[in-house]
Design a protein around this nucleic acid. Structure first.
Lengths: 191, 191
DNA sequence: TGTACATCAGTGAACGCGCGTTCACTGATGTAC
DNA sequence: TGTACATCAGTGAACGCGCGTTCACTGATGTAC
């Protein structure tokens, strides 16, 4: 063969990584195939021997990013407070391309084809349970509901922090998010 | 004149209303001028005697929607709990085109020109103070921070509720958001 | 009172451009005989 | 050992289409004299 074994898989992975980052950085609708392929070091035509369509790429890139995030949130890594502070950090806010897919793309998920939304829904539940297992009442219905609210809070806070045109306000949004997340995640507030 | 007095202003307002709804329904990047003008009952060319560019329309439509929302949130209308339940209702979730511009568009605000982002930032602060004035400790720095977190929570919850492909989960996200908002807005949790 | 002209919201065809996608082709390698 | 063929990742030009925008024009009305 012309290329070493595994070459095609490597190329596919490169396209996936580039797409995943560009989608999160600029939005899905605003990201074009030409830009993705150029940054992958390929010409347009090569794309279709790796993916069936842009929609197929979106689904694959979203799933991949969500799975990476899930893997990165193993229960034995960071405790709840550390996780909240890291998610709601200026570093995360300023790095959408490498950050949480939900924070970057949740507003666009609703416009995607049903199959993609279904995959998103499944991965979202897995991520929420990563939050739940760090709560004091983990396993109860209350903790399960609370994990959804905490997820909503941090996703919303990162988005607002990225939207505003005022560094100081942006920092305050993140800080207030940490404060509120700790309230929602504390033992007393769960019943 | 060919048209009655105020005709042009009426047309401008119609374009603005159509654009504002379409942006919230389908996203800004995914909304085209042709669709906006067609639904406004006009041909493409008429647009540029009302607005300088699509960016100009985006800024005007966003500002208008935020100002309407602000006006609708007068301090004497609904109390905190009622406001939260109404914002986090299935009705709001299922009506993005007529709903909160932040819930529909916050993910795209960061990609807009600085002038538009600056306008958004200003209106966002005004909306947050509509939340703050309903909190028991209104006027304190704690209530101010808390209002930002509550805003992040409800924006995130509506977005997640719209993203997932599972009605029951979507309802649970909204319900957990109400529960959490009431915790964050209660007197005890503010210090 | 009649006529020539100014006004101006809106028309509709066209502009250049980039989109997602297709496809005939290239060229380096492995395989068959 | 040499040669003909198969394989296949990637090339690059082209497809039709819709994007945002421009512009010469229309036609109904008001104004000037």
């Amino acid at each position: 063969m012309r290329y070493e074994k595994g070459h095609k898989a490597t190329t596919r992975r490169r396209i996936l990584d580039v797409a995943s980052r560009q989608f999160r950085e600029n939005g899905i609708a605003a990201t074009g195939m030409t830009g993705i392929m150029a940054e992958s070091g390929l010409t347009n035509g090569a794309f279709y021997s790796h993916f069936a369509s842009k929609d197929d790429l979106i689904r694959a890139a979203l799933t991949d990013a969500l799975e990476k995030q899930h893997a990165d949130l193993g229960p034995d890594t960071r405790d709840f407070a550390t996780l909240m502070r890291s998610y709601l950090s200026p570093r995360h806010r300023d790095n959408p391309g490498g950050g949480c897919p939900s924070a970057a793309l949740v507003g666009e998920i609703g416009h995607l084809p049903p199959a993609t939304r279904a995959e998103y829904t499944e991965k979202l539940l897995a991520l929420a349970s990563r939050v739940e297992e760090r709560l004091p009442a983990a396993g109860t219905a209350e903790a399960n509901r609370r994990s959804l609210a905490i997820f909503a809070l941090v996703v919303g806070a990162v988005q607002l922090a990225r939207a505003v045109d005022d560094r100081d306000l942006s920092d305050r949004i993140l800080a207030s998010g940490v404060e509120a997340a700790l309230v929602l995640g504390s033992p007393g507030s769960e019943d």
